[in-house]
Design a binder for these strands. Structure first.
Length: 588
RNA sequence: GCCCUCUUAGCUUAGUGGUAAAGCGGCAGUUUUGUAAACUGUUGACGUCAGUUCGAUUCUGACAGAGGGCUCCA
């Protein structure tokens, strides 16, 4: 969409927010309006209802009122106010007063906009003809939102809505929202029997069902194979460790809120690990290292536990127990750039395999002025930030830079992926760490015989199984590629007398390492086809009289089955050897 | 954690101040099937704990879990 069109849409939506505020005030004259911007998918307006309850059931009547009111809105009249006038007008609204104070401090003009009988503090940006333009809108939901997003502030009531220039666009948006729900990983995860939760285990702790576990293990197998080829060594570390480890790493008490509480035992206090790095550092320093050994890349599919706020948990996207494709790279300062480049290249490779194209990187830098927030190593910062920036430029991938968002111990790069249903997630993050070397005394002997400090890169290209699989479910809409499909081929015997032959064929394919099931239920073939299709199995094989005519148990490769491919339909009769070839091709 | 909403069988839903209906699934039987749901029978639920009430799945409260949100700034 070009800028002009985007502006018009934003203006329409922001105007609609005004209309919403006007209608709300009609029903709730004491509500205090705060802010009402347009957003990507529509608009919202935050109110302080001051203990008056409002629920989603109230939205239809507000919407009706908006439709009524807009008929008398001929335009938006701009009114400039002096600061005294503005303060006087909003003397009962502390939120608007706060905004006005800020404008006064910045020395900006204070403007009000009037439409119908409704006047609001506003910088402008409206549709010129509200009466005729604001027609296709819908209020969507009510949510709580802290004033200015800070949990220390009062919780306001936010009303979300959306608006479009035409009826078709509005309907299309609502339809897309419905479609997105069908792809939601929570829904598909249950339908395809991939994972579940149970109150007896606890929120945010996933129970992986057999089919979901196959996906996990295939991903691990793929990552292990890939990372072995890229020079990583695998390690394994315990799920818990003594308090001193996390004190040394600096996570206690700094990160304590997000860790499960300690377990007091007779030899001290133990904590569940919330990250793998401390244990990897100990492995690094388990013996003296030479400059010739570096870089050392230690990798682990490590399971960590983080006590995330209960309200933020969501399906597999945000959990409390997660297994990550983790690795720590220990390198010399002169290797930072080349190692970082390798990590970015590894991401590129992974994302290509999964057909992920809609992503960008976010480089988080430190703010030299904000001294208290960052470790005091100006040389390390400037050296590494420049090196990483060069790497990102060389990678030719899109990236943005964010000031003052680095970790306290070093700059980081997040990979932001936009899923097909429009959710943007940070799937993976690469962080450079200047702090670990001092905290854990991570050194190597350089060629001059002197001890030097080692730099650490944290990376997890596939993120956690939990979030990555959530992403993949939605990305593929449950139609996993053959190598990830929990069941790759379902064999359907047409009648009972074809079951034994089907089993022999299945066993043969299983012995060749394929995941094959025989649907031997007492059902009609049509029902079995339907079920296998709904389970999104990539291949379905039908076995009836025609197929077993010349079947010879001694030579199962010659057997025929009628093959059907997901989304492509009938492939006709294929011999098993032909099917093996087809599979091999798919897996490449 | 905070705000709003929700919680009836494995799943999707109906319904009521006098303990509940159905479809799918599961199980049993009949049927032996040629490309997206055979037929018959049967099984199975009001999240937990309090309160109000003669009586609560229904009303109230707490708790637990799930869902939508929690700076894309007048």
């Amino acid at each position: 969409m070009d800028n002009n069109k985007q502006n018009q849409l934003n203006n329409l939506r922001h105007s609609c927010a005004h209309l919403l505020a006007a209608a709300v005030l009609k029903f709730y004259p004491d509500a205090k309006p705060t802010i009402g911007p347009s957003i990507d998918e529509g608009f919202y307006y935050d109110f302080d209802f001051d203990n008056v309850k409002i629920s989603e059931d109230d939205l239809p009547k507000i919407e009706e009122e908006m439709k009524k009111m807009v008929k008398s809105w001929d335009g938006f009249e701009r009114i400039e106010k002096s600061s005294d006038q503005a303060i006087e007008y909003f003397k009962n609204n502390p939120y608007k007063l706060e905004l006005i104070e800020e404008l006064i401090q910045k020395g900006e003009k204070i403007t009000f906009y009037k439409s119908g009988d409704f006047i609001d503090l506003c910088r402008g940006g409206h549709t010129p003809y509200p009466k005729s333009n604001i027609k296709h809108f819908k209020l969507l939901s009510i949510a709580g939102a802290y004033w200015r997003g800070d949990e220390k502030n009062k919780m306001l009531t936010r009303i979300y809505g959306t608006a479009f220039p035409t009826k078709d666009e509005l309907e299309k948006y609502l339809w897309q929202k419905e479609e997105a729900k069908k792809r939601d990983h929570r829904k598909l995860g249950a339908e395809l029997e991939l994972f579940t939760f149970d109150d007896m285990v606890g929120p945010g702790l996933v129970l992986w069902l057999p089919k979901g576990t196959i996906i996990r293990e295939e991903l691990e197998r793929f990552a292990k194979k890939t990372e072995k080829a890229w020079g990583y060594q695998r390690v394994a570390t315990p799920h818990l460790a003594k308090k001193i480890l996390f004190e040394t790493s600096g996570h206690l008490p700094y990160y304590k809120e997000s860790m499960y509480p300690g377990m007091k035992l007779d030899d001290g206090e133990y904590y569940l690990k919330a990250m793998n790095c401390p244990a990897h550092h100990l492995i690094y320093r388990s013996k003296p290292r030479s400059y010739k050994d570096l870089p050392i890349r230690l990798a682990e599919y490590g399971t960590v536990y983080r006590y995330e706020l209960s309200g933020t948990l969501a399906g597999l996207l945000r959990v409390r127990g997660m297994t990550m494709n983790d690795s720590h790279i220990y390198c010399r300062k002169d290797q930072i750039k080349s190692e970082f480049l390798r990590v970015v290249e590894l991401h590129k490779y992974y994302y290509k395999v999964f057909g992920i194209t809609d992503y960008y990187m976010r480089l988080s830098l430190h703010d030299p002025k904000n001294k208290s927030k960052y470790i005091d190593e100006p040389d390390s910062w400037s050296f590494s930030e420049n090196a990483i920036r060069e790497v990102l430029k060389e990678s030719k991938l899109p990236f943005i830079e964010k000031m003052d968002e680095a970790a306290f111990y070093g700059p980081k790069v997040d990979f932001q992926i936009k899923s097909v249903i429009g959710r943007e997630e940070s799937i993976s993050t690469v962080q450079l760490d200047f702090a670990a070397k001092k905290r854990f005394n991570l050194n190597y002997i350089d060629n001059d015989g002197k001890e030097k400090e080692v730099y650490v890169i944290h990376r997890a290209p596939l993120g956690t199984h939990e979030r990555f699989i959530a992403f993949l479910i939605e990305h593929y809409a449950g139609k996993f590629p053959l190598w990830l499909s929990p069941v790759q081929l379902t064999l359907i015997p047409i009648s009972e007398k074809h079951v034994d032959t089907s089993r022999i064929i299945a066993d043969h394919l299983i012995s060749k390492d394929f995941r094959v099931e025989v649907d031997d239920r007492n059902e009609r073939m049509q029902a079995k086809i339907r079920d296998a299709t709904l389970q999104k199995v990539p291949f379905i094989g039908i076995i009836g009289d025609k197929e077993i005519e010349r079947f010879d148990a001694k030579n199962p490769e010659e057997a025929l089955i009628s093959l059907r491919k997901r989304d492509e339909g009938d492939l006709g009769q294929n011999s098993i050897s032909e099917i093996l070839q087809t599979f091999q091709k798919e897996l490449e």
